[in-house]
Design a protein around this nucleic acid. Structure first.
Lengths: 196, 196
DNA sequence: TATCTTTTTGGCGCTGAGTGCCATTATTCT
DNA sequence: AGAATAATGGCACTCAGCGCCAAAAAGATA
């Protein structure tokens, strides 16, 4: 399905992240995450168990797929916001854009996020991914406001954006036809009135 | 150190949660959390490895000690706030009270929270504990505002309080002599101005 | 005192994630 | 053809966690 082109030396890779991800998701949906072993995924991909661990550092990382790449895009998006947009507004705008998927991608995204947010093992592991995401926001806020790394506000901004995002995702997963960017905006509105 | 009184039938317990916790913390501080095995803790307590798992469901649960009890207290505190106090104010007040320790307890609390917040393995596991804590807030907010379980606001309130709390803990751990309740209040103030 | 009942203990053996080591295999370069 | 390079995957290991069960230790009863 995916081209395994490799124009350098050495043996060609037998698989790729995408193939592993697809095979794994098939098993996760059929049997559940905890009930699926790396052995089974390896067999399904047609590869050794040992090889799987060269593509993904852990079983918990498989559902996150290409998140690192998305993070780089997120950081770029932030960097490109005009300096006259208020900091909070800039962050919010990019968070909304970060979670705006087109229709086909949306179905897959829903499956992915349901798995991540409804499997306790993955909920736990996700903190480490969330930390990286918060880090992007912290860096941006600190840069924009010219604050040091021990400052309170950038970290707070990261935590608050994450709280809004997760809360929105929970809501989105509850309602099959709801619109994620819309929920994000609504949550922000609710937060403002909740705090008076 | 702790009385192992047991006035019912059967064999007396050889240990208790407190003893295990103390032995474990000694090892965690000396060697680090990930480098300490359940085998070593068992040996240090003078008990079989299998027995440890009867007192704590997992190694990750040891640093959390008596958290379940604290949660019950937290819920009671919330329930006892007069109904004329605004919901958000009530939550905030109880969160501050929940994190107000006296001087001796504070030193131990600092060690505990440093371990939990600075060990990636524990950061991850903690989500499950945080979820229970958020649940208490969700229930309270939903009850006060007479909202159903699918409502947006109670969940959002839980996430936001957690974000404020964790952000405050991070700040508290950075400054050796800072005052946790004070930081919590300051974070709230900052949040309000950040959102305009 | 001897036996019964209840409760905790802890040993044994298993599964499954994750890791270090290294020989094997596939591929390009000279 | 042979050297260099890179991916594979088998092997053996550590450790968390769990089900099972026999042994130990205590009070209760006769």
């Amino acid at each position: 399905m995916t081209a395994l082109t490799n124009r350098t030396r050495g043996r060609r890779a037998v698989t790729d992240h995408g193939s592993i991800e697809r095979a794994a998701f098939r098993l996760f949906e059929a049997q559940g995450f905890d009930e699926t072993t790396m052995e089974q995924i390896a067999e399904s991909v047609g590869v050794g168990r040992r090889t799987l661990f060269r593509y993904f550092p852990s079983k918990n990382d498989i559902p996150w797929g290409q998140f690192d790449q998305s993070l780089r895009d997120f950081a770029e998006q932030l960097a490109s916001v005009p300096a006259d947009v208020p900091v909070f507004e800039a962050v919010h705008r990019c968070v909304v854009a970060f979670n705006d998927y087109d229709k086909e991608a949306l179905a897959q995204h829903r499956i992915r996020m349901r798995l991540i947010l409804e499997t306790p093992t993955l909920q736990a592991h996700s903190v480490l991914r969330y930390a990286a995401w918060r880090g992007v926001i912290e860096d941006y806020v600190a840069r924009r406001l010219d604050l040091g790394s021990e400052s309170l506000l950038p970290r707070l901004a990261g935590h608050i954006s994450l709280a809004l995002a997760i809360s929105s995702y929970e809501q989105w997963l509850l309602k099959p036809d709801s619109d994620l960017p819309g929920i994000l905006r609504q949550e922000l509105y609710e937060l403002r009135s909740y705090l008076q």
